[in-house]
């Protein structure tokens, strides 16, 4: 019989579930959790200063060094500051953009706009950041060339450049969830608010913003975590500025356990961030 396999499977729900989830579970456990576990364990190892070999013994020394050395604390705060700035800039740009896409643009242009928001994601990350390098290059860059005559100059390579570059890179990840959230928001709620006497800004503050808050949180998780872990942008347009990722990169070949310890910091920050969000209740309605 043609259907014999499906009939046989139909009577065995557990086997069906196993077949469905085997591959993703394997991937999750081995590649994802495995790597994360290895990272966490390695963070507690040290190296022999003389031979450079890894000493696989539990040791809090790396954490002690990071927490007491002001240089590392500065890198942590700087990275955090950049990630927060990027998230705020993305949110401020994305909300009106997504609102236009979901509520004002015609049905036909909505799809085109979504495609346009996605197009930058088709280009390579490196290409985009090198493009920004050309844009922001002091004196000879595109920005100084065009805006220089009216007195606006490139901020040069450094913190502001990193923030501009990362905001550009992650903006689509903020726009899309907010757009999806606004699409789910019935137009009648906006009509009702106006009908009850609210001007547009009041409607935005009291109706739109609370209802798209979960979408904003979803977008911020992308922009925030992607910024926390980035190091290439800092390398290319950050000048001498270092983010956490750069410190990991530098220590990777010379002191692997120390690099692992640094790498746990963004993980810990993300965990705290998620915990804070959870307390607002936004995760429940995602």
């Amino acid at each position: 019989m043609k259907n014999s396999v499906s009939t046989w499977m139909h009577k065995r729900p557990k086997l069906r579930l196993t077949a469905l989830l085997a591959a993703p579970t394997l991937w999750l456990v081995v590649a994802y959790l495995g790597a994360l576990g290895a990272l966490l364990i390695t963070a507690f190892f040290t190296i022999d200063n003389f031979t450079g070999n890894i000493i696989a013994k539990f040791n809090l020394g790396n954490f002690h060094d990071i927490l007491t050395d002001p240089a590392y604390r500065n890198v942590v705060l700087r990275t955090l500051g950049i990630a927060v700035s990027v998230t705020i800039i993305c949110a401020v740009l994305a909300v009106p953009m997504a609102f236009f896409m979901a509520k004002i643009a015609k049905q036909k242009s909505q799809k085109i706009l979504v495609a346009l928001v996605l197009t930058p994601l088709w280009a390579s990350y490196l290409v985009k950041i090198y493009a920004w390098r050309t844009m922001l290059e002091p004196n000879t860059g595109v920005m100084d060339w065009i805006l220089g005559p009216i007195g606006i100059h490139s901020p040069g390579f450094g913190g502001p450049a990193i923030i501009i570059g990362l905001s550009y890179l992650w903006l689509p990840y903020m726009i899309l969830p907010i757009y999806a959230g606004l699409e789910r928001l019935p137009n009648s709620l906006l009509d009702a608010s106006g009908d009850l006497g609210a001007r547009n800004f009041y409607t935005f503050r009291r109706v739109v913003l609370p209802l798209i808050f979960p979408s904003l949180v979803a977008g911020s998780m992308f922009t925030f975590s992607l910024s926390l872990g980035d190091y290439i942008t800092a390398q290319i347009i950050g000048g001498k500025l270092q983010m956490l990722g750069n410190v990991v990169y530098q220590n990777f070949s010379i002191n692997l356990p120390f690099a692992a310890t640094i790498a746990t910091i963004p993980v810990a920050i993300m965990a705290i961030y998620l915990w804070l969000i959870r307390r607002t209740g936004a995760l429940a309605s995602l």
Partner: peptide
């Protein structure tokens, strides 16, 4: 709408869910 002395009951009620 906000400058008109009329109020509407909507087909889907349009109550603010939050």
């Amino acid at each position: 709408p906000y400058e008109r002395d009329v109020n509407t009951v909507f087909q889907d009620y349009a109550l603010f869910p939050h």
